[in-house]
């Protein structure tokens, strides 16, 4: 009597299916740990972000719109449990719109909030990016979040010859990513009037090309037309192309090195994958335990076992019998 014998695979397969099916009640969930991120996304709203150098020539997309599109994609692609806060940047500081909130539960309002961000919310025309990043880091520290700062890196007025303002925080305490927005080729910056109508582009003479606050650099006396009292910065008007704008990658990387943030370039409005991997590299992750429903896997195993019993084995048998039959025909 071998009723438990291995010879009958069907018995085992059906028993396995039964146990898998029962197991959906015993262990419906498994606790798995997942990495999630808390981010404070800061969007630069200054003038150069209106440059439309994304998209194609038929449908140009401004840097601001590209940043918003990337953020909206990020809301979709961040793992549940991650939290996202929103802030805007102009002048030298970030203005917090909303503290970080969970991305999946607040999916709809987050997307609508991002869609409603507009350059008209900017309250000043200046763009002291380095100071803005420092301030964003302080805000993010208070909110226990990582910084995700989207900017083209163009300081307006240009950085002083003495270099970047010193960073007063602790390097590396707050982590995060600077996202370089804009193409590498220079483009003119659109100009708007008081009511928000577009009135052409900034010309060479519209913007300062040198930051002449404070003391002139030591070598200014070699400049043409230098006079210690009347023309300490030299006699000639500063030349430059600050009225054109491209992503200032070198500067952003320098700011990143100064503050301990990573850097990534936003290649296209849809390139959220690079963004996510940069976040994975440079941001602080939080590990959460999530209960994952594994009943589907168990049911799948049960179905496979039953397929084995009712499809594979009968096919096997049929094949074996067919071969025997062939052989017996040949024998007789």
């Amino acid at each position: 009597m071998r009723w438990l014998g291995v010879s009958d695979a069907r018995r085992w397969l059906i028993a396995l299916a039964f146990f898998c099916s029962i197991a959906t009640f015993v262990v419906p969930q498994l606790e798995l740990s997942a990495k999630v991120y808390d981010l404070l996304a800061v969007i630069d709203l200054t003038g150069s972000m209106n440059v439309a150098d994304y998209g194609d020539s038929n449908k140009p997309v401004s840097r601001l719109e590209a940043s918003k599109a990337a953020l909206r994609r990020l809301v979709t692609d961040l793992p549940c449990g991650s939290r996202l806060g929103l802030a805007i940047f102009t002048e030298r500081r970030t203005f917090l719109l909303a503290a970080p909130m969970e991305v999946c539960a607040n999916f709809a309002p987050l997307k609508r909030m991002i869609a409603d961000i507009d350059w008209r919310m900017a309250w000043a025309g200046d763009s002291y990016i380095t100071k803005g990043v420092h301030h964003a880091i302080a805000e993010a520290e208070r909110l226990h979040a990582n910084v995700l700062f989207l900017t083209d890196g163009q300081e307006a007025p240009p950085l002083h010859h003495s270099g970047m303002p010193p960073f007063e925080g602790e390097v590396g305490k707050v982590k995060g990513v600077l996202v370089g927005v804009g193409q590498y080729a220079k483009s003119p910056i659109p100009k708007f009037d008081r009511d928000g109508r577009r009135v052409g582009f900034y010309a060479v003479d519209d913007v300062p090309h040198e930051n002449r606050h404070g003391l002139p650099p030591k070598d200014s006396m070699t400049r043409q037309g230098f006079h210690p009292r009347n023309a300490p910065w030299g006699g000639a008007a500063p030349a430059g192309d600050e009225h054109l704008s491209a992503v200032r990658e070198k500067h952003l990387k320098a700011v990143g090195a100064q503050t301990g943030l990573g850097y990534v370039h936003l290649n296209s409005a849809a390139s959220v994958r690079e963004l996510l991997s940069a976040i994975g590299e440079s941001a602080k992750a939080r590990t959460v335990q999530t209960a994952t429903d594994i009943r589907g896997w168990l049911a799948g195993a049960a179905i496979l076992s039953l397929l084995g019993a009712f499809l594979l084995l009968p096919l096997f048998d049929g094949f074996a019998r067919w071969r025997l039959k062939q052989r017996s025909i040949h024998q007789t």
């Binding site: 806060g85 909030m113 919310m121």
Partner: peptide, 17 residues
């Protein structure tokens, strides 16, 4: 300047944030 923060929504979490 006026700043648009959150459109009308029933999601309490977002409002509180």
């Amino acid at each position: 300047s006026p700043i648009h923060v959150l459109p009308l929504t029933a999601e309490k979490d977002a409002v509180l944030a």
